[in-house]
Amino acid sequence: ETINVSSWLPPQHTLLVNTLKPWTEEVEKRTDGRVTFRWLPKPVAAPPSTVDAVRDGLADMSYVVHGFTPGRFVLTKAIEFPGMGESGEISSIAYQRVYEEFFEGKEDEDLKVLAVFAHSPGYIYMRDKAVTKLEDLDGTKMRVGGGLVNDLTKELGVSSVLRPPGETYEILANGVVDGVMFPPEAITAFKSEGLIKHVTTMPGGFYRVSFLIMMNKDKFESLSPEDQAVIEELSGVALARSAGHAWDIQDAKANAAMDKEGIQRHEADPALVAKVQEEADKLKAQWKEEAAKLGVDGDAVMKALDAELAKARAEVKQQ
């Protein structure tokens, strides 16, 4: 069986090079070539339509950011809050376990979910001005992606400018925005390290983005039980962990590149961190209400996330 894979990230992206390509090769090997993967030259749909494309069998396998289609995915915002793990690997291990316990089948029952994961912590990258205090953020124009960070920055006094990621370099170079919120990896992915002078971090990051790796359900079920078992075995926590770790690998390179450019590192001061937590708590309360409507106990999810994060932290440290 050939699985058609649709991919909308550039081919050299860390998720593809360090996770998905090796993963597909492993599946091919373990099924003795009964299952092969074909990477389509071009994605079959725009990123926001990718979920539907896989669902309808345009492609058999792809990945997507939950935040591309807000409203459709509510539960998966849980991992996007500030402070949810200090590396992509840790967040993703914990997130996948919590997902399996609470979210599975709730909002994606028509897909075969291989894994969910989160990228590494997102920070504030500024063109000219250093940010350490809450007041520094007031009135700055910042490029943010969609999802939770969009609501969060609004409450911090930031004017969020939502632009396609491809325009990142341009709007930074032009000064259309004063800064961007990204994980380190994205700064180099968009060749912007030369444009950034300051970065502001906080423990566990200001946000992270939730991803989904999925297969077409019919396609998956058309495979033989033993091939399905191989895919199942390689999916779940193992795949989530690898994907989260892919960001950590690239972050290391990106940080080195930025250090070479002489980027100054700052830590958010306690007042700013407190304010971020305060606003995040309000958004969490909102999220819990929405989760309740879907029959999910938000408090239990948050508690489980804390516990799983601690567990994952220990596991990662051990190795």
Binding site: A46, S49, D52, A53, G57, L58, P164, G166, E167
Partner: peptide, 23 residues
């Protein structure tokens, strides 16, 4: 190549995505 079902879906998705392209 893919059968009529995915093709119909592709047509709708393509028209919608192209129509809503910001750039």
């Amino acid at each position: 190549i893919l059968g009529i079902g995915p093709t119909l879906s592709m047509v709708g998705t393509t028209a919608f995505d192209a129509g809503l392209a910001y750039n």
